[in-house]
Amino acid sequence: MTTDGSKLGFYLLLAPILLWLVVLIILPHLGLFWVSISEKIGPREFQTGFGNYVTFFEEPLYWRTFARTAIMSILATALTLIFGFPIAYYIAKLTRGRTKTTLFLMCMIPFWVSELVRTFGWMILLRETGVFSNLLQYLGLVSGPVEFLYNDAAIMVGLVYTSILFMVVPLVTTLDSLDDSLIEAGYDLGGNSLSILREIVIPHAMPGIVSGCIVVFMLSLGNYLTPILLGGKDSLWFTGMIYTQFITRFNWELGSALGFLLLALSSGVVFLGLKLSRQSLADTMGRA
């Protein structure tokens, strides 16, 4: 009787996540896939085929934007790691108690504000009549207003800023678990800061690095707001292209195909990243 009862409890507890998976993830994707393999041959007339996918490869704008989005996202992930690692190391290893909590909170606080508001914050800083432009003019370094917005660098700044927390949190967690005596042992055996970082700290932090990178890469690749707002109309971000197909062009079939290609891209890059770093998904997600 008790086993029956506990079984029931198990399924009841499992139900929400199953429901969530099936209704909100699997069903929409099946629907989307179905739409993506429907070719429009006339008004309200469709036939099944991969024509939409062929269109993607035939039109350079599509696959160039696709490649550009992937490369920019990888670059954003790398930059986030480079900026996030020292922050995480400082919080995890060089501070104690209250200071640690305060610093960690200070990393979190910006995320209490919506992404939209934060991005507008950057626009206030970067626009032609913005803070940086005025500051440079005031200092006499430039003669006229400078536009910092609407270029790739602005997109990159926005992407790194938006996702840095998702790099710092898993890194702090893994670095926290690194025993200080291992670092001391490294020094004691004649290691210098660089070799200890390379041989002891980074191998230990690898699961955190990989899980942080996966999350940041996914967030950047699927980001819509930041590239559009900071990069302007010509930001050429793949999510923007999908949006255009669905909303402006009303071409759901091509939009779905592009969406599926984005899914394949993110899965492919994550898989490659895991292979290169010799980590398994279960390992990294379990530890971080």
């Binding site: 005596s181 291992l182 042992a185 004691d188 055996l189 004649g190 290691g191 041989e199 002891i200």
Partner: peptide, 21 residues
């Protein structure tokens, strides 16, 4: 003289063997 330049070595309380190697 920093620890990595001293001619002493230390066996730590919990040994501190590097688990990743």
């Amino acid at each position: 003289v920093p620890p990595n330049k001293r001619p002493v070595s230390m066996v730590f309380q919990h040994l501190a063997l590097f688990p990743t190697m």
